[in-house]
Design a protein around this nucleic acid. Structure first.
Lengths: 117, 117
DNA sequence: CACTTTCGTAAGCCATGACTTACGGTAAGT
DNA sequence: ACTTACCGTAAGTCATGGCTTACGAAAGTG
């Protein structure tokens, strides 16, 4: 049930940038905010969201607050995606066998419209 | 670069329910809408978003429109998450070695606050 | 004890987007 | 040809949430 909040968190571009910077290692709030186009309080709020979702942990280091990735939340999301992946593959294989596409459209190619306005 | 739109899509609860029902197999728009608390046009709009994100494909079947999961979009998201997972594990391991936590707080346990208002 | 640094929270603003109803267009049935 | 079923799009409404500035608390520095 936590993969839902994880997805919600990682959907926001700014929050994703914060999270991705934490891949490199633990960072304080100010450090993270310095490399982003938003204010420090904004980063603080994003970190709170990430923490509530179980994606990060924090540790006090003097007056500073150091955040780092919690593998637990990420792992849960990963497991959900893996189960999904398996089922989706089976369903798609059956689809391909029963309804072979004439030609597979390239990604980003607009689908044939019914009519031009 | 497509994993971003995939994340955006899967963040919405309704859209996730639509997508999860497609795990079982191809479904028409009306069928999907029947099991949801929203209108059929709403489902149609969600399906458009999923299609733009490369998460689903569709096929015309008479007057009906049958949607099914496209493994490509899901695979891209999965690969992104896997790379992330690896790097995060390394960073966390280093964190645990250099800053051993006294005790690991259980998930959902509120962290110690600085002060009560 | 002042003064600075670092941070979290509150309050308010505002764009995004999820939903609705209304409408038009295509396919199948009679 | 008329009617019904199924669907996508347009337009408008409204709540969500991401951002800002302002403020107060805790830790380090002189």
């Amino acid at each position: 049930m936590a993969y839902e909040s994880a997805l919600r968190c990682l959907a926001d571009p700014t929050r994703r940038r914060v999270f991705e910077r934490l891949r490199e290692g633990p960072r304080a709030v100010g450090e993270l905010a310095a490399g982003l186009p938003v204010s420090r309080p904004a980063v603080s709020q994003h970190l709170k969201a990430l923490k509530d979702a179980g994606l990060v942990l924090d540790r006090a280091e003097g007056a500073r607050r150091v955040y780092f990735i919690d593998p637990d939340g990420l792992g849960e999301l990963r497991r959900w995606l893996d189960r999904f992946w398996d089922q989706a593959l089976v369903a798609f294989k059956h689809e391909a066998e029963t309804h072979p596409p004439r030609r597979r459209p390239a990604r980003g190619t607009p689908s044939p419209e019914r009519k031009k306005p």
